[in-house]
Computed example of a mutant assay.
Amino acid sequence: MSTVAAGTLALPTPKDAAFKSSGETEDAKVENGAVRAGSDRVEEDDDGKLRSVDEQDSGLKFSLKEQIEKDKDEGRLKRWKEHLFGRVDVSAIDFGVGKKVPEVKILTLSILSPGRPDVHLPFAASNNPKRSLFTLKEGSQYHTKFSFNVFNSAVSGLKYAYTVWKTGIRVENTKIMIGTFSPRQEPYTHELEEETIPCGLFARGSYFVRTKFVDDEGRCYMDFSYYFEIRKNWQ
C-alpha cells in the first residue's frame, strides 16, 4: 500500500469528474458495441455491463484440444489401473475398515501333457496323499491348469505356491503370482507356463508335492498334498 503525504492529496474538481464521467461513457459505448458485434446474444451482468452469452459461458466449456488432452489422461489412468489390478472391477475392492472377506473356491487342478489324457487332481478331503496320482515321462512337456471362483469381495494378489520333496529332500519351492480378481458368477481359468520334466537316473522316482493358494493378506484358500512319479516311460 502506498503512503500519501499529509496535505498533498488532491481531490478531483467537478470539471475533472465531469471529464472522467464522459470518458467512461464513451468507453462503455465502444465496449458494448464490440460485444454486440461479436455475439448475437448479449446480457447485462451484475455490474451493468453488457457481455455476450458466449463470454459468460466460456469458463464452463472445454475447447476441442482440451477435451482431447482430457481423454488422453483418462486413458492413461485406465491403462495404469489395468496394469496394477488386471481386468478387475476396482469398485468391488473395499479398502476401508470392515470390508468383506473374499472367498476363493478352487474348482479344478489339472496336469496337462501333449498327447496324454489330462490328469485332474482329486483334492477332496478323502484323498490319500501317499498314493501316486500320476506318472510323468522324463523329458516330456507339461503345464498346470486350474479354475476357481471368487465371491463376496475382490481377492488381491492371489498366488499359487508349491513345494516339492524327493526322498525327504526339498528340491523346489516356488510361488507364482496369479493376480487380483473381482467377484463374479463365472469361474476364472488360469494356465501356467509349460515346463520340461528333468531326465536321468537321479530325476526318476517318487515326489511329494504340497500345493497352496494364498493371497496378499496371508489367507489360504487351499492346502493340498499329493505324490507323483517320474519314469523313463509313461508306464
Rank of each mutant, 00 (worst) to 15 (best):
S22M: 09
S21M: 11
R87N: 11
T144M: 12
F134K: 06
S147K: 15
F181D: 01
T167Y: 13
F208Q: 14
L192S: 07
F85Y: 14
K49Y: 14
T167N: 13
F202T: 15
E44N: 05
T167C: 07
V119H: 05
D73W: 04
A37C: 05
S225M: 11
Y142I: 08
E172R: 13
V101M: 09
T135F: 03
K232I: 05
E55I: 04
G157W: 02
N127L: 05
M177E: 13
E191H: 04
T163R: 14
L158E: 03
K159R: 14
Q67R: 14
I197R: 03
Y160H: 11
E55N: 12
V30R: 10
L11V: 06
G23S: 11
E229R: 12
S91N: 00
K20M: 06
D47S: 12
S63L: 04
K99D: 04
A17V: 15
R41T: 13
E66C: 01
G23C: 10
D73Q: 12
D94W: 00
A37Q: 07
I93M: 00
F85T: 00
W80T: 13
T180N: 11
D27F: 09
D54Y: 02
P117K: 13
F95N: 06
E172H: 10
K130L: 13
D223F: 10
K99F: 00
L11N: 04
E172M: 11
Q185D: 15
G205M: 06
N233Q: 10
I230P: 01
V53G: 00
T144V: 15
G115D: 02
G205D: 11
G23M: 12
L201Y: 13
R76W: 07
A18F: 11
G115F: 01
T211V: 15
E103P: 01
G86V: 08
A6C: 03
F181A: 04
F151W: 10
T108K: 13
L64M: 03
F62H: 14
L84D: 02
S140M: 10
S126A: 11
S225R: 13
Q141V: 10
I197F: 06
G205V: 12
E82C: 00
V53T: 06
G23P: 01
H120E: 12
T3Q: 11
V90S: 01
E24S: 14
S126H: 07
K78R: 11
T13A: 07
G98A: 03
P114Q: 00
L109K: 08
E69C: 02
L112S: 05
Q67T: 11
L64Y: 06
D54F: 02
R76L: 08
A125Y: 07
V171C: 01
N149E: 10
Y188V: 00
L136F: 00
S153A: 13
H83K: 15
S153M: 02
H120P: 00
T174N: 08
C199A: 15
A10V: 15
A28F: 08
D89H: 00
I176V: 15
E44I: 11
S225A: 15
G98M: 10
A154G: 02
K49M: 06
T167H: 09
F123G: 12
K159M: 07
K166G: 05
F146T: 05
L107I: 13
